[in-house]
Nucleic acid binder design. Structure first.
Lengths: 128, 128
DNA sequence: AGTCTGTTCTATTATTAATAGAACAATGGA
DNA sequence: TCCATTGTTCTATTAATAATAGAACAGACT
C-alpha cells in the first residue's frame, strides 16, 4: 500500500494518512478484518510520530472504518464496507456541498460533475 | 442573503462565510459586479470581527470569486462565474477525492453519488 | 470637511497539529 | 514463565492557526 504524505499541504498529515487508508478500503486493497500496522511500526515506516498515527486511527474509528482492540491491534472494521447509514449520508452531503457550490460557479453542469466523479473513481481504483 | 454560521463547527467561521458567499454566487443571488458589504459593516451584521470577514474576502479573492479594490470596496469578480480553468479543475478534483473514496467504502454506486450531487444542487438552488 | 474604504500594525487568547519520552496493563508467542 | 508488542495515558514543548481587539493610515467619495 502506497502512502504519500505531502508535508507542505494545508491538510494535516494525520488526515492525509486517514484518507489514504480509506482509499485503501475503497479500492479493496484493505478488506474488513485485515490488521493494520501498530502505531509504532506505522509511524516508523512513514517517518512520523506514533501519536500522529494514533490520531489518524481514532479519526477512522469514529467514522467506523477501523476497529481498535485494546492491547491486540487495529483492524479494518468488519462493517467498514457497508451500506451508508443516514448519518453517513448526512456527513457526505455536508462535505460535498461547498464543493458542489464551487463547481456551479465554475459552470460545471451535472454531466461535467458526473464525469469528474467518474474520473476520480477510476483513478482510485486503477492503482492496484 | 441568509448566512448561517455554526459557532461550534469544526470548520472555521471565516471559511463558513466564504462558502456561504460562494453559494450565493452559485444560485445567482450574487452576480458578477455586485458589491459586497464593507468588512466593518459585514462584521457588525454577522456579529463577528472585521478581520475575520477580511480573511474570508482574501480567501475568496485568491480563488478569484471576488475582487478587492483598494479603498473602494469588494465586488463579485467579473470572472466569478466562469468556465473552470485547469487549476480550478485540479482543485475540485483534489477536494473531491477523499469524499468519493469514502462514498465508495459506503457502497455508493456512481448512480447513488450522482443522485446525491443532484440533491445538493437542488438544495442550493431552491433557496431563492 | 468628513465619512468610508481596505490595509497594516501590534497584541492577546485559545485551539490544533506534531513531536517527544516515559510508563502502564494486557496480550500472545516462545 | 519470560518478554516483546499492543494501544493508552500522562506530561511537555513547539509551531501554526483562528479569532478577537484597537489603533492608525491613505485614498476614494460625497
Amino acid at each position: 500500500m502506497f502512502i504519500e504524505i505531502e508535508t507542505n499541504s494545508v491538510v494535516p498529515i494525520y488526515l492525509q494518512l486517514a484518507q489514504a487508508i480509506i482509499e485503501g478500503v475503497a479500492k479493496g486493497e484493505l478488506k474488513p478484518g485485515d490488521s493494520m500496522p501498530s502505531v509504532r511500526a506505522f509511524a516508523a515506516d512513514l517517518g512520523m510520530n506514533m501519536h500522529t498515527v494514533n490520531k489518524a486511527y481514532h479519526y477512522l474509528e469514529e467514522k467506523e472504518f477501523i476497529q481498535i482492540v485494546q492491547k491486540k491491534g487495529v483492524f479494518i472494521h468488519e462493517n467498514g464496507v457497508r451500506n451508508a447509514s443516514s448519518s453517513d449520508r448526512e456527513r457526505l452531503q455536508k462535505d460535498l456541498r461547498p464543493i458542489v457550490a464551487e463547481a456551479l460557479c465554475l459552470q460545471l453542469s451535472k454531466e461535467d460533475l458526473e464525469q469528474l466523479v467518474r474520473d476520480i473513481i477510476l483513478d482510485i481504483k486503477e492503482e492496484r
